[in-house]
Structures are given as structure tokens and as C-alpha cells.
Amino acid sequence: MLLEINDLNVYYGAIHAIQGVSFNVREGEILTLIGANGAGKSTILKTISGILHSRTGSVNFNGEDISGTAPYKITRKGLSYVPEGRMVFSQLTVQENLEMGGYVRNQSEIAPAIDNVYVRFPRLKERRNQIAGTLSGGEQQMLAIGRALMSDPKLLMLDEPSMGLAPILVSQIFDIIKELNESGVTILLVEQNARMALKIANRGYVLETGRIKFSDEAHNLLDNPEVIKAYLGG
């Protein structure tokens, strides 16, 4: 197992946001967490990445307990997180954003890594010297993913990558995620767009108010009548 979450409990003050969630991510797969707004999907990613702390439970990454570790150290272990809303550095250029993504790497590795990102996203290369805040939503999402790839992660966590994008861009982003996975990156995908997410995922977990309600192979969840009714629009 690349990532193992055991009996995770996370609180926001008195609110018990994540209630005893356990799941795991196998090396090489795409795992998706789906669920309604407020189900706790983003909270789980923030806890794994170290921004939030769990009250109890453990997060094991690559055989090492990382709960309570500072976010910058977790990134250095090979876990990259694309936060909800993309969060590019809007006042830095595209190229500088990518350099920041490669902050943990040796100076000599950064230029080739940036070239790799530009091969994957030629659009970013065209705009390399543009201030990131002036990019379109789709371009910002590409930049956020490219930036996260700069650290050469073992596991890439994506929080709502399709949010706020035009339908054509949504399918483009999902294609990119699939391609990344095929090139060897393990993916933990959190999405509101459950149908699209389950189509590219190997396995899925359905989260409801802080608990896991279903877990199954992705194609089974796509056929599950309860999941269809609640999350796939009937």
C-alpha cells in the first residue's frame, strides 16, 4: 500500500468532520473519493497533506507514519497536493510557479522537470513569462497540476480539479489525469463530478457526512443503484 489511512478522526472545533475514516491507495492506481459538498473530502486531503491535524488515527505513506508531520516535510517525502481552487501563485510567472513546485529538488533537476511539464502542457510554455493570475481557469489548473508534478511525486492528490471549468476543459483535465496515471503516478482524486471521476478511477470510496458509505471497484459503483440515485443524477 502506498497510502494507508486508519480510523481517522478530524475536528473543526467541536464539529466532528471526519468520523473514523479508513481507506488505502495502492501503488499505480487511481482512487477517487466522491461525495456531496461538505462530506469531508477536502478535509481528508488537507489532513493527509499536513495542513490539518487529525485528533486520532494514522496516515501511513510509503510505510512511514506521517501524521503530525509539517506539510513541507510531507511534500519532500513524495506526496504532492493540488488544492481546491488551484491556488497558483498569481503574482509569480508561470515559470516561477513551476520553479516553486520543484523547490525540494536539486538545482540541476529543475530545468529538465520544467521541460517535461512544457511537453505535457505546451500551452504553459507559450505563457511561461506571463503572470499566473492572468491565466484562464483551465490554464491555471494545468499550471497547478504541472507545479505539483515538479517535485516528482509518488502520489498526486487532486482536489476538485474540474471545479469551475467549461465542459470541454473538464474532459481534457480528466484525460490528463489518466495519462499521468499511465505514466506511473499514483492518483488520489477528490471530485464532485462523480461520474467522470469513476470513469477513470480503478476504485472509489463514497463519503457521506464524514463517514465512508460505499467502497468498491469504480465500475461497480457506476452501476450501484444507490450511488446512481444519490450521486450520479438518477
Binding site: 509539517a70 509569480l92 516561477e96 516553486m100
Partner: peptide, 24 residues
Amino acid sequence: TKMGKAMRAVSENSDVAQLMGINV
């Protein structure tokens, strides 16, 4: 410089800067 860029990144969004591996 690397430190200069990190300063700008932290000044814009320190949470995200941490996710880049920057020691804020």
C-alpha cells in the same frame, strides 16, 4: 534567487508555499 522566490511565494500564500516543500 531561490530564497527570494520563496519569499514571494510565502507572501502570497503561505499554506500553498508549504505544499511546495518550502519551510515557511
